[in-house]
Design a protein around this nucleic acid. Structure first.
Length: 445
RNA sequence: UCCGUAGUAGCUCAAUUGGCAGAGCAAUCGGCUGUUAACCGAUCGGUUCUUGGUUCAAGUCCAAGCUACGGAGCCA
């Protein structure tokens, strides 16, 4: 029995006999010569069945293999620049093979398919090279974020998914029955993070969040993953430094570890190489002026209407895009109007109509990937805001109590994993960034 | 929720003015010693999204509904 290897390591075994185990990704044949492209999860390798080098029965089995059949193949590794694969350049001359299961009528062929068909077969689509590459990059992005934060002295502190009250908006919560009492799936771990920083200084939570928004766009999921750092004794400017450090590290790690995957998805790596510190930092006031300037400059009445904005309004999707297009890397927009932001954001001293908030807008039309702010740390002000929004103090008792026992200035942000992956990978929809997307009209498979 | 577009073979699509429902791929069988979405020959493959209507005749026209896709709002 030859050594079982992973295809990603194939180059190390040139000249040796090995065993690989996997699935038939594609097959082309030419009579007595059959080429089987085998994938094993780590990569893809061309396995060559040549009638004269095998016994007749084994050759017939190889010739009859169907797409996605599971198979164990033993043979000699040899370098051949004609051989396709991941990494490619090496192939296996089949000596023997064993079929675990002969697949029949695998639906995803190497031709074009529509979105609905592919999403209905997501459990199989994840096997395709492109999806394989994207999901591997997703894993690296998450690891890069966590590694960077851990190295900076942050502690991972998990926050609950079933919660008693709203984080922000009550209308977009998923309600669950908690032994007869209503409870809600978490929209954010932020409020708990604010408790946890008083114990650990710098923390982050990472997990799924749930929003029952009836939004149907390329940037929205009903269930998405978010990483939320929170830092005690932190200003908005320091927060931007942290966000910048995190995002540039992610881009660098993906470039370093995934040239192969980036090539598979045909991502322009120059766009990723541009993601270096510092990012431009502009105020909301400045952003509005820029948009008004753009609206004035254009002759297209439709574009003019899309860009039109009055001070005090939040940015729409086309406006975010137009704003971000002025930069070749992410851009910070800070000091948004207090009225369009959440109740816990600190007002700017001497200018309460704007607050100490900051969004990070990604380039290439990917929009907001991070939202963050300095949190209100004075009890009175926080109580006033909760009353003003009609949220009800009872539900926030514990949160308000944090302001009574050694409250300190603090700040934090949330970064959406799927939006980040879509941007880094250059995808046109977040549905491909998560293995099993939950969308407005889809919870299958 | 609103606006727009679409739904025909397993998949991707075609079907002229309302006049016999078709192609490529996949599958199956055969051929081929270097294929890269191979190629060549053959075979198989249909409730034209649903319901109702107009008509001698509906994939095509009308009405309602369903589903998907694209966009908006909301957001990360």
């Amino acid at each position: 029995m030859a050594e079982v290897i992973q295809i990603k390591d194939i180059a190390r075994y040139a000249g040796q006999e090995v065993t690989v185990r996997g699935w038939v990704y594609n097959k082309t044949g030419k009579g007595r010569l059959q080429f089987i492209l085998l994938r094993d999860g780590s990569g893809q390798a061309q396995c060559v069945a040549f009638k004269r080098e095998m016994d007749a029965e084994a050759f017939e089995i190889a010739r009859g293999l169907s797409q996605e059949s599971s198979v164990v193949i033993t043979g000699e590794v040899r370098a051949d620049e004609r051989a396709p694969g991941i990494p490619g350049g090496f192939e296996i001359g089949i000596r023997d093979l064993q079929v675990l299961q002969q697949a029949q009528d695998y639906p995803i062929t190497p031709k074009e398919h529509g979105t609905e068909f592919l999403m209905n077969h997501r459990h199989l689509w994840v096997r395709s090279s492109r999806q394989w590459a994207i999901l591997r990059i997703r894993a690296t992005i998450i690891k890069a974020m966590r590694d960077w934060l851990d190295d900076q002295g942050f502690l991972l502190v998990d926050t609950p998914i079933i919660t008693p009250a709203a984080g922000e908006e009550t209308t977009t919560l998923f309600e669950v029955d908690y032994f007869g009492d209503p409870a809600f799936l978490a929209q954010t771990g932020q409020l708990y993070n604010e408790a946890n920083i008083m114990a650990f200084g710098k923390v982050y939570c990472f997990g799924p969040t749930f929003r029952a928004e009836k939004s149907k766009t390329r940037r929205h999921l009903i269930e998405f993953w978010m990483l939320e750092p929170e830092i005690a004794f932190c200003s908005l400017e320091e927060l931007m430094d942290i966000e910048e450090g995190l995002v540039t590290h992610v881009a660098a790690q993906v470039l370093e570890k995934h040239s192969q995957e980036l090539a598979i998805i045909e991502r322009d790596v120059n766009k990723l190489r541009a993601i270096t510190a510092p990012f431009a930092r502009i105020s909301y006031d400045d952003a509005v002026e820029r948009l008004q300037g753009l609206a004035e400059a254009t002759d297209d009445p439709e574009a003019k209407a899309e860009l039109a904005i009055a001070w005090g309004e939040d940015f729409g999707s086309p406006q975010e895009t137009a704003l971000a297009e002025q930069f070749d890397k992410p851009v910070f927009v800070y000091h948004y109007p207090t009225a369009v932001k959440a109740f816990y954001m600190t007002p700017v001293a001497g200018r309460p109509e704007v607050c100490r908030s900051v969004d990070l807008l990604a380039p290439e039309g990917y929009g907001e990937i991070i939202g963050g702010s300095e949190r209100i740390h004075e009890l009175d002000l926080l109580e006033q805001n909760i009353d003003k929004m009609g949220l009800g103090r009872e539900a926030y008792q514990w949160y308000l109590e944090l302001r009574k026992f050694g409250t300190v200035p603090h700040a934090g942000f949330g970064i959406g994993i799927e939006r980040t992956v879509a941007w880094i990978c250059g995808l046109n929809h977040v549905r491909e960034t998560i293995p099993y997307a939950r969308l407005l009209n889809r919870k299958y498979p």
